[in-house]
Design a protein around this nucleic acid. Structure first.
Lengths: 238, 238
DNA sequence: TCAGGTAAAAGGTAGCACCTTTGATCGCTC
DNA sequence: GAGCGATCAAAGGTGCTACCTTTTACCTGA
């Protein structure tokens, strides 16, 4: 928490506290309280609050103080909000949300990639799929996972849609954590390698429908893993 | 642009300028320049910059000033960034991105909704689907569109995934603009009403696969509308 | 070519005036 | 005496000014 700039220390600490629920919704902070807690000047406290306000974690009103907002209004795609939730006890809920998001967007991202991938991106996909095969068969799990991550990252980038691109980090987070999501069978399976190869070939071939279908195949076991949580009652964030 | 708080005026003006490209990437602003342009104090200028910095529209470095960042680093899901892009000459590109996002997320949102919708949400879907039928057959286009919007909004909300919920406004924006996306045939068609009804019934019935399939049907003509733009070269944001 | 000086610009501090909202107190009426 | 409106003080964010500190790009000169 060594802050090159002071306000980022304030933001990180308070943001994590709010997102984790340690500071409950509705709590009214004051600038003076923040100044004292972090031993900073009013300016620093105010700039920190502006940042949290931009994330919709708090609102600031005269006479009312700085009021912690409910999760519904948070900017849940903000990198820092995601990070804070992953670092809190809400990590499982955050990973579930991310995985569901991934299930939604990856198939059509593959479709778009088939239409828009550059030669460089196609090369990167070929290499990633190849490495998954090689390291998967060799039992090199770490390298296999790295190739897997590179593959999915490249597909999203190759969609050339800035919103899909913006979701790369969150999706990668979900990909990396896959084993935690009820995905019980041994991790590198031949079927997965085949499917990644199919996605790669379809994208290289410009066949959007095939790329989408193959990506759906990759996600099918993630979907069944999520299935158990589908009727979960505690799906509200916070 | 009447700003109850001064810094929001600064943020809105500069944000729109940056996002539209009127202030090119790499431009270095200074606090002093901002103070003069908007006739505000240093405090206000700094707080405004903190907000733009939180959106990753600018970075602020000593000696360099406040440097405008490239579109890749923007927080493209920030409501204000989307709004500014929609209000700029990049509106078509933004709508295309949003429509592609919608195509990705709505089917699985329907799937999730089938598992998680509350009774109230199911009621809202029934009502929206019913109104689409009634107003569609009566030729009341405005009411038909309103019901359509309510329907899609409710499906996303019923997914009970905060990330899908956070995408409601952007998706609605795309839904409202559908006619602009090469969607050429007359707007309220019986097939659309049938499909919305099918989604509603599947969700009410808890049948995720059916809900997803029906939603894919709703999106099929949006997808064909996008098809023309699939190989567009100017897909980079900014 | 490298060392050191210089200055630009953000980072940070301090403190004041002001505005809005809240809520308590006071006084008037019935 | 009870209720109701007016007034006033305090809280706390908003905004401004002034000034010092720190970083670092860039220039100068050996």
């Amino acid at each position: 928490m060594v802050a090159t700039v002071l306000h980022s220390g304030v933001v990180n600490a308070l943001g994590a506290d709010i997102v984790s629920g340690r500071i409950p919704v509705g709590t009214a902070l004051t600038l003076e309280g923040i100044q004292e807690r972090f031993d900073v000047s009013r300016t620093v406290a105010r700039e920190g609050m502006r940042i949290l306000e931009a994330m919709h974690l708090v609102t600031s009103e005269r006479r009312h103080g700085i009021v912690v907002q409910p999760p519904e209004s948070w900017h849940v795609f903000d990198r820092r909000v995601i990070r804070w939730r992953l670092d809190s006890e809400h990590r499982p809920a955050q990973l579930r949300s991310l995985t569901e998001l991934r299930i939604g967007i990856e198939p059509f991202a593959a479709h778009l990639a088939a239409a828009r991938a550059t030669e460089d991106e196609k090369d990167a996909l070929r290499q990633a799929a190849g490495e998954m095969r090689v390291f998967g068969e060799a039992g090199r799990l770490d390298r296999y996972l790295a190739a897997d991550i590179a593959f999915h990252r490249t597909v999203l980038r190759a969609s050339h849609n800035e919103m899909y691109v913006a979701l790369i980090e969150p999706v990668i987070e979900a990909v990396s954590e896959r084993p935690l999501h009820g995905h019980s069978h041994a991790y590198p399976v031949p079927a997965a390698m085949d499917l990644h190869e199919a996605v790669m070939l379809a994208i290289a071939d410009g066949d959007g429908a095939a790329a989408e279908a193959a990506m759906l195949g990759i996600l099918s076991d993630v979907r069944s893993g999520i299935g158990a949580a589908l009727h979960a009652d505690d799906v509200t964030a916070g």
